[in-house]
Design a protein around this nucleic acid. Sequence first.
DNA 1: GAATCGATGGTCT
DNA 2: GACCATCGATTCT
Length: 196
Amino acid sequence: MSRLPRDFFARDTLAVARELLGQRLVRLLNGQRLAGRIVEVEAYVGEGDGACHASRGRTKRNAPMFGPPGHAYVYFIYGMHHCFNVVTERAGYPAAVLIRALEPLEGIELMRELRGGRPDLPLTSGPARLCQALGIDRRLDGADLCAPDALLFLERAAAVLDEAVVTGPRIGVRGDEAALISPWRFYIRDNEYVSR
DNA sequence: GAATCGATGGTCT
DNA sequence: GACCATCGATTCT
């Protein structure tokens, strides 16, 4: 099982977003492997993207987006939730892919515990839900996903066919008109773990 | 099933 | 002081 190398992330963000579908996100937590198949993502591209956190320049919070590709950008929102992004493109150009939903594959029992132990709630169908299920918080902000000793990384898995990929406007975006309609959300058609 | 709302805190103006 | 790349519960049709 090979890991996605830095070159994979050092490319056009829309291409990276599209190709992240089907790949496996792996979290090592307390010696356990938690993993899921990526089924939904969104791209946030550059300072010209009104919905991108970097659209108003570099700040302490969004600094990882301006850094080298293959690193994590984890932010805290709504007073209680975390969201996880993979930084793309070259250092100095702020862009990232938000991971919005996974299909749980490994460590499902621990994921359920991290989600509060309730059997009836979705585990990883939503950006904040998957962060809770995988134990992702601000301690992983800026982490190198390509380091040999990374506790969070991506593994190569079977590609998703074009006919199984759906694109559409991003969820929850409140930016300008172009940002509202840009079809930069990608998800796997008919997958039951896609959010909303 | 759809619409609405409260929780809760960091960040930026 | 306003805004938020959300979630889960509640309250309607």
